[in-house]
Design a protein around this nucleic acid. Structure first.
Length: 420
DNA sequence: CCTCCACAGGAAGCGCAGGAGT
DNA sequence: ACTCCTGCGCTTCCTGTGGAGG
């Protein structure tokens, strides 16, 4: 019987993908190659929860894309399954502090995991805390709270909440809470209040970066599930692995590359994924990132960025804070806007640096002061395109862009002529 | 060796918008 | 209608500092 479903399925059948979702960052695979040891270690730390004992707090450190989150989620889902079987009440609560970077939102998420509904905003953190304690106290559950990218929370709000959380067990009756902190910032642990540090770091675990060989294994394994057999040319996986290995062995980056390369191949109607698709994917990922970062920038952030572009136009590759500020003032005057202070611009530049749009390092020029030397670290045309999306500064961007690109091109031409 | 530049970057606080509770 | 809370973009005021020039 040829049902409609059959027709649709044939129409939907991709030559490239079998199951694209297996390459998405939040997919937790059922095997995590080269992380067997970490898995066993975490499992053994958490195992006491199955007997109703509170597991030690755990602190995990490792660069982005080293599998921290995946490993923790994997172990927790196995743990919860095993607890269900044995009738022990174990509940995992996962919070990512990068996106929930205020004590309020972190507590709100924990509250939700515990089963209290908490409004989007409006309560004091103390109030939420009290509600959580009230709800959880007699539930007789072992809660395992994962605070992923915990540094984002502490960097911006201090370790107050953490301190409270590490002491929550004193206020609970039959329930227990143990914490798993995850971070990719090395100096984070040192910045903590010693009391928090010793409590959170009862057990510590370091995830080393993957090397190119290991990345290849990971990619191959995922590719088997995600792609049609033979859809990848031989050199695709090694290339993705090599590119990602260059970026501190970031497996997430490697998987993104592979997925986007596949999407490009499919969109382009190619039979197989080739090297060129990977290279194009790399550009596209970078461009998307830049556009996204810039879209969410406040107006003066965009203007400061424009000033950086303008002052690095032409043969100059770098500029300084003072120069940028002067240029920024000129630009705001053109638009008859108020200017922000130098302090704020300095802060904006630091943010842009963190976002990877510019890169700067603080140097001292002795008698001539100390400043941040800045250069653009994202692609110029991608930046300009993203900035011109903003209505207020669109025209100005085009003007600066013409200037910057024009100078760059004429410089290239001149170099070309001299070369002859 | 000391000075002093040109900023870095911490701390406190302000006005506003958005949302909740009462 | 009113109060209270938070996040945000920002200001004000501040202390800190690497090293060229005196």
């Amino acid at each position: 019987m040829d049902s409609l479903e059959e027709i649709f399925r044939r129409a939907l059948k991709s030559k490239i993908f079998r199951n694209r979702e297996k390459l998405l960052p939040d997919y937790v695979p059922e095997a995590l190659p080269h992380r067997e040891e970490e898995i066993r270690k975490i499992a053994s730390v958490l195992a006491p929860s199955l007997r109703g004992e509170k597991p030690s707090n755990l602190f995990i450190y490792g660069l982005t894309g080293t599998g921290k989150t995946a490993v923790v989620r994997y172990v927790l889902s196995r743990l919860e399954a095993s607890a269900r079987e044995s009738g022990q009440r174990v509940r995992a609560i996962y919070v990512n502090a990068r996106y929930r970077d205020t004590p309020y939102r972190v507590l709100a998420d924990i509250g939700e995991g515990v089963g209290v509904s908490i409004p989007f905003t409006g309560l004091s953190t103390g109030e939420i805390f009290a509600r959580i304690v009230k709800k959880a106290s007699d539930a007789g559950v072992i809660y395992i709270v994962v605070l992923d990218e915990i540094d984002f929370l502490v960097k911006r709000r201090g370790d107050d909440v953490l301190y409270k959380l590490t002491r929550i067990n004193g206020e609970l009756r039959s329930s227990k809470v143990s914490l798993i902190g995850i971070t990719n910032s090395v100096d984070f642990i040192e910045s903590l209040d010693p009391r928090v540090k010793s409590s959170l770091g009862e057990v510590e675990l370091v995830f080393p970066p993957y090397n190119a060989e290991q990345l290849k294994d990971i990619l191959s394994m995922r590719a088997r599930e995600a792609f049609q057999p033979g859809a990848l040319e031989e050199d695709v996986i090694p290339l993705c692995a090599a590119l990602a290995a260059r970026e501190h062995g970031d497996a997430r980056r490697a998987l993104d590359l592979l997925r986007v390369a596949g999407e490009l191949a499919e969109r382009g109607g190619a039979e197989r994924v080739r090297k060129e698709h990977v290279m194009k994917a790399r550009e596209e990922i970078e461009r998307d990132r830049v556009v996204e970062v810039i879209r969410t920038l406040p107006l003066h952030g965009k203007l400061v960025l424009l000033a950086v572009i303008s002052t690095t136009a032409g043969g100059r590759t770098h500029t300084t804070t003072g120069e940028v500020y002067d240029k920024y003032k000129l630009l705001t005057r053109r638009l008859s806007l108020e200017t922000v202070t130098l302090r704020r611009v300095s802060g904006i530049l630091a943010e842009l640096d963190m976002l990877g749009v510019i890169s700067g390092r603080v140097i001292s020029k002795g008698r001539y002061g100390k400043t941040r030397v800045i250069e653009l670290s994202a692609d110029l045309s991608a930046l300009l395109r993203a900035l011109s999306e903003d209505i207020t500064i669109g025209e100005l961007t085009e003007e600066v862009g013409r200037e910057a690109l024009g100078k760059r091109d004429s410089l290239r031409r001149r170099e070309g002529e001299e070369g002859r």
